[in-house]
């Protein structure tokens, strides 16, 4: 069971991957997205970390993002961010 995750910046498609879970720093609180999450849209906090769990129980990969926006729909999770720092 994998979640289709895309991270897009204005300059390029930063990441397109199948992952287990992503914890997204929403404006109104962090939320974890697994496969089959109900559709939602949220703006993101600036300079907060996006945590990507490649597999269940793995150490998360952290990416700092700014100016972000997350969208969950049937096809997966898309994060639009103005800046991304590894």
């Amino acid at each position: 069971m994998a979640l289709k995750f895309e991270l897009v910046t204005p300059e390029k498609l930063y990441r397109s991957d199948d992952v287990y879970m992503v914890v997204v720093p929403g404006t109104e609180g962090d939320f974890g997205v697994l496969e089959g999450h109900s559709p939602m849209m949220s703006t993101l906090r600036n300079d907060a970390a996006l945590e990507i769990y490649k597999t269940q129980g793995a150490t998360p990969e952290r990416l700092m993002i700014a100016g972000g926006f997350a969208e969950v729909n049937a096809s997966g999770l898309t994060v639009l961010a103005e800046r991304v720092e590894a």
């Binding site: 929403g26 404006t27 109104e28 109900s38 559709p39 939602m40 849209m41 703006t43 729909n73 049937a74």
Partner: peptide
């Protein structure tokens, strides 16, 4: 694919 009820935050 937004036909389903979408939650918005905020």
């Amino acid at each position: 694919g937004l036909s389903a009820t979408v939650e918005y935050e905020p």
